[in-house]
Design a protein around this nucleic acid. Structure first.
Lengths: 255, 255
DNA sequence: GCCCACCTTTCACTGAGTGAAAGCCCACTC
DNA sequence: GAGTGGGCTTTCACTCAGTGAAAGGTGGGC
């Protein structure tokens, strides 16, 4: 019996998405076989889908027969309102912070149980920074992550603390009780810091960006703003002020 | 006869792409009917595709039944190597220029017969700027556009000059012979300028970013770097130098 | 030369996709 | 409060687009 042995719930649309989602930061250029394995689909099926996607300019195909996300999908992605509206409003404020501090500046939101970086202005200082726009990191090991975790729904926060927390460095705080106390401090003080917790040699400060929620005076944290510096020993107050001014400005500019 | 009257060459993949491509800068949130009209597909077909795309987290659906590009497609778009590799290499240099000039900085490539903006750092100065990352503008009315047009294949350039050129402002240069001479000057001098040609009250300077092409000493222009300022009367030399230093730095950092 | 890994094409089968038609739901009108 | 128009959703009989095992290339390592 040749032909259809598709698993249940398999539509063409879901297969197309499986192929697209098979690409990631470490795998931006992939061949048919590897895509098929990553998408868990038969090779000929993937091959046909790829041909159609290339014909539709969604993917590109290089001379070596490797496929990559194409310009038109980049275009489409840039239209995602959730990400780009905030990014656009925040852009001039990020520039201000960058001008004032010369540090790497980050704009990030919480996506499930991860930090999702929406934008980054790179500092020229020799601080190792792993994030880039579109990348994801743990919530408990970065400044913006701690801010977002501190202001996440209590249930999600507790669930997160109950999981086995990653340890990017030996300084990463993974003890639930200690982290819980730190998050309470973040809510109380209005900012979060890290020292060598994500990358050795990198410290960070971050503050929440809040929008006045529906009608009443209640505030809702929608994003976080942070900078990465070699050390927090000096200038902590000045950096914090620059961040808070910008965060307030962004919050006021939100629709 | 109910059912299939699909036009020839219509596959599910092409329909999915038609739906995705129906979104644009001015239409980021659309209902079923409007999407169907824009994608030129029957409403029930689009409705089903939308449901599957939302289930796959490619699109989001708001309470009003309007659809928009979702987070995961934004993610996917951020993986497009052509756009983001260049953007990432250039990022710290854009910051440098921004710090040195406080102007709006642009990184752009040519996409067919249009300028495609890959990145923008907004200046706080009150200069009207219409572009944003992902947007497209005519090649002849912006600084980066003139640079890219000047270094485009001769055939494409001539074809472009032969078309009916848009006039965003009264200062836009649309006379073919005058533009042709200006483009020759751009190649000769190594930079392009505009004055009120895209937006009244905005001037620009732009320079090419070149990569040493395959083996020989030949240079290939892959992108353009530009800034937008209120006036070019002052500081033209300083601005130009900042741009050229950055462009050379980016060119050297290219793979 | 032989093997192995990957890419591409073929092809008989069939259920996933199709879209006209009908049914909703809501807002606004008279 | 019946009527109207707009868009959103569901149904359903038909059939062709999609399927994937198998076979056929292609290239590179040794």
């Amino acid at each position: 019996m040749p032909g259809n042995v598709s698993s249940p719930g398999a539509t063409v649309v879901s297969r197309v998405l499986a192929v697209l989602y098979a690409f990631d930061n470490g795998h931006r250029r992939l061949g048919v076989t590897e895509l098929a394995r990553r998408a868990d689909l038969p090779v000929p099926t993937v091959h046909r889908l790829l041909r159609e996607l290339v014909a539709g300019e969604a993917l590109t195909r290089d001379s070596g027969g490797r496929y990559a996300i194409g310009r038109r999908l980049w275009d489409v992605g840039m239209l995602a309102p959730e990400q780009t509206e905030l990014q656009q409003v925040a852009s001039p404020f990020l520039s201000d912070i960058h001008a004032a501090t010369r540090a790497t500046v980050h704009l990030a939101v919480r996506d499930g149980a991860e930090v999702l970086y929406l934008d980054r202005l790179s500092g020229r200082a020799s601080v190792p920074v792993v994030s880039r726009a579109g990348s994801r990191l743990p919530l408990h090991s970065t400044g913006v992550g701690k801010v977002l975790l501190a202001h996440a729904p209590a249930q999600l926060r507790e669930d997160y603390l109950a999981t086995d927390l990653r340890r990017p460095t030996v300084h990463t705080i993974t003890h639930p009780e200690r982290l819980r106390r730190q998050l309470a401090a973040v809510r109380r003080e209005g900012y979060a810091t890290t020292e060598d917790e994500m990358t050795l040699g990198a410290c960070s400060i971050a503050v929440p960006i809040a929008r006045a929620a529906s009608g009443d005076g209640e505030q809702e944290v929608v994003a976080a703003l942070g900078i990465v510096v070699p050390t927090l020993k000096r200038e902590r107050t000045r950096l914090l002020t620059a961040l808070q001014v910008a965060a307030r400005g962004i919050g006021r500019s939100l629709p």
